[in-house]
Simulated scan of single mutants.
Amino acid sequence: MTAQRVDEAAPYQNPADATLAVEVAAAVEGVAGVAFLRPGLTDRLRSVLGRGAAGVPAGVRMSRVDGDGPWQVEIHVVALRRARTVDVARVVRDTVERRLAALAPTLPAPHVTVTVTGLV
């Protein structure tokens, strides 16, 4: 099977997977020290055009090699300057791992990568 890649150009094919990604995004946004998820081009255009929010934020990318494998999760956040960046990244990773374990307890542990793309 080929990898299912999820990003702005290729929306989630399965609505349950999109819901899972939205849940992960909400968990990340609730982490102390996170200013916001990195916006993508469509998020920026949406704000200029005044459209309502739709879909999964660009700062969350999730893919699985097959239906039985672990999630490969990429998180891109902008952190607050007052917080230690490494601590924010660790808490985000732990939060995503716990949230996915709670939402999909039968799946293998996810592989989570967190990148801090900026500070505000």
Results as ranks from 00 to 15, higher is better:
A102D: 14
L100E: 02
A9D: 14
Q4R: 10
P105K: 00
G118K: 07
V24N: 01
A10D: 11
A32G: 08
W71L: 06
Y12F: 15
T95N: 02
V86L: 07
V28Q: 01
R51I: 10
R64S: 03
T85W: 06
Q72D: 15
V24G: 01
A79P: 05
A83G: 05
E8Y: 03
Q13A: 14
D17P: 02
V78M: 04
V88A: 01
V73I: 03
R44N: 05
A109G: 09
G33T: 04
T19D: 13
V116H: 08
L119Y: 13
E74R: 06
T95M: 03
A35M: 07
R98K: 12
V34M: 11
V22P: 02
V28R: 00
A53R: 15
W71Y: 15
L49W: 12
L37H: 02
V22T: 12
V92M: 05
Q13D: 14
G33V: 05
A21L: 11
L20K: 08
L45S: 02
V24T: 06
R84L: 06
P57Q: 03
D68H: 10
G52D: 14
A10L: 12
R81P: 11
V34G: 07
A54Y: 13
R5M: 12
T106L: 08
F36M: 14
A10V: 12
L80H: 12
V114G: 03
V78F: 05
H76Q: 08
Q4T: 13
A32P: 11
V56W: 09
L100P: 08
R98Q: 13
P11F: 07
V114R: 00
V34I: 09
R98E: 14
A26D: 10
G50T: 04
L80M: 10
T85K: 07
A89Y: 03
G30Q: 14
G67K: 02
R61F: 06
A79H: 07
L41Q: 10
A21K: 07
P39L: 09
L119E: 12
V6M: 10
G33L: 05
Q13L: 13
T95F: 01
A101Q: 11
H111L: 09
E74S: 05
A27S: 10
L107A: 14
T2Y: 12
D17L: 10
A109H: 15
M1Q: 12
G50E: 04
S63C: 08
D68Y: 06
L41G: 04
R90G: 15
V92A: 04
L100S: 00
T19W: 15
A35T: 07
R5A: 12
A79F: 06
S63V: 04
T113K: 08
V65G: 05
V6E: 06
D94E: 15
G50H: 05
